[in-house]
Design a protein around this nucleic acid. Structure first.
Length: 373
DNA sequence: TTTTGGTTTCCTGTTT
DNA sequence: CAAACAGGAAACCAAA
């Protein structure tokens, strides 16, 4: 039960944050490659007090603007006004009496008449929302639904998660409690905005040659792939071997009794290449509103960061790769391979702490803001 | 079809 | 003692 609620919260909050955290005033955004204005989030880094509390769901969040009611439109406008510290007295609210569809049809000039200088901001936000919501939404909803089923089935079997459920908040090592929700922002397959645009604007490092593939949309959940977390028990699947024919990637696990249970018909298809692990990590880090409790910067300038909830991050990565047996141990092995490639540098003596290396990109504030202009 | 990059999995040993 | 860290080895898979 707790787990189910947790994951629901995760995604609710994911929506809230993703769809409510639009462009800050200082940076309007041509982020075609940045789904749901992901880059926007970056610049709000220091704005800890978002107008909308992360735990509070905006009426309009998670819904395509075209479907907003008049009330939702007003909510959204109020939110924008507040977020941008805009002087609401200059807005003619009587002219805001429109539903989402009408709002979306407004030309920038019309918006300007009503909203003045805020209009461009609104228009750009609206554009982002309308163009980005759909795919992500369906992807995540599908994931959520399946997760719910799976988790509900899990509840009677507390031991199923040998790593412990990442959705149960842990006490952070700094003594803090993680946010009340599980910020599963990334796992939902954020199409790694930086992996395409940010990487390119980056340092022209070696990986940029293939970052196009890694940056391609990784919203790779084929809607027809209803077997992501099969309702007949992904937990069985997670421990087991895939269906006959193809073996699960990686070194074969030793056959356990759980494995054998899975021999019948559980999916084995792995996610197509998408975001690389380091990009996944980076993207969690550069969305501070979403990753609260998962990871944090130790030193943003130097690219030093720390895992706060290592197993949760690993689970999220596993979700993204459709591999529910991912653990921090395995994730960290992949991280260690990055040392050689200088995507990461060692940080000796500090547990769960890593540092971006010279072959990484897209995490520096300059790069991020640079890619937006 | 083969090669290759990027993991994933497993393992043993070491360090914190 | 548990959790992380290290890094070798082997396997997998998608893309080139």
């Amino acid at each position: 039960m707790a787990a189910t609620c947790e994951i629901s919260n995760v995604f609710s909050n994911y929506f809230n944050t993703m769809y409510s955290s639009e462009d800050p005033p200082q940076a309007p955004v041509p982020s075609a490659a940045a789904p749901f204005g992901a880059n926007d989030l970056v610049v709000t880094l220091n704005n800890q007090q978002m107008p909308l509390e992360s735990t509070e769901k905006a009426s309009w969040s998670g819904e395509p603007p075209q479907l907003w009611s008049k009330a939702q439109v007003l909510d959204w406008i109020s939110y924008q006004v507040e977020k941008n510290k805009y002087d609401a007295s200059t807005i003619d609210f009587s002219r805001c009496d429109m539903d989402g569809a009408t709002l979306c049809n407004c030309a920038p000039e019309e918006l300007r008449l009503v909203f003045g200088p805020l209009a461009d901001q609104l228009h750009s936000q609206l554009w982002d929302l309308t163009s980005n919501v759909t795919d992500e939404l369906s992807w995540i909803i599908e994931l959520l639904e399946k997760d719910c089923v799976a988790f509900q089935e899990t509840l009677g079997d507390p031991g199923s998660f040998d790593q412990g459920s990442p959705f149960v908040p842990e006490v952070l090592d700094d003594g803090r409690q993680p946010s009340p929700y599980y910020p599963g922002s990334y796992g939902s397959g954020t199409p790694s905005p930086g992996s395409s645009d940010v990487s390119i604007t980056g340092t022209g490092t070696p990986q940029s040659s293939h970052s196009s593939d890694s940056g391609s949309s990784d919203v790779d959940l084929d809607p027809s792939d209803g077997k992501l977390f099969p309702s007949d028990g992904f937990l069985d699947y997670k421990k087991g071997e895939p269906k006959h024919g193809k073996r699960k990637r990686g070194r074969p696990r030793k056959l356990s009794k759980e494995s054998r249970e899975c021999l019948e018909g559980k999916k084995s298809k792995h996610a197509p290449r998408g975001t690389h692990l380091w990009e996944f990590i980076r993207d969690i880090l550069i969305h501070p509103e979403l990753n609260e409790g998962l990871m944090k910067w130790e030193n943003r300038q130097e690219g030093i960061f720390k895992f706060l909830r290592s197993e949760a991050v690993a689970q999220l990565w596993g979700q993204k790769k459709k591999n529910n047996s991912m653990t921090y141990e395995k994730l960290s092995r992949a991280m260690r391979y990055y040392y050689k490639r200088e995507i990461l540098e060692r940080v000796d003596g500090r547990r769960l702490v890593y540092k971006f290396g010279k072959n990484s990109s897209g995490w520096r504030e300059e790069e991020i803001s640079g890619s937006r202009s």
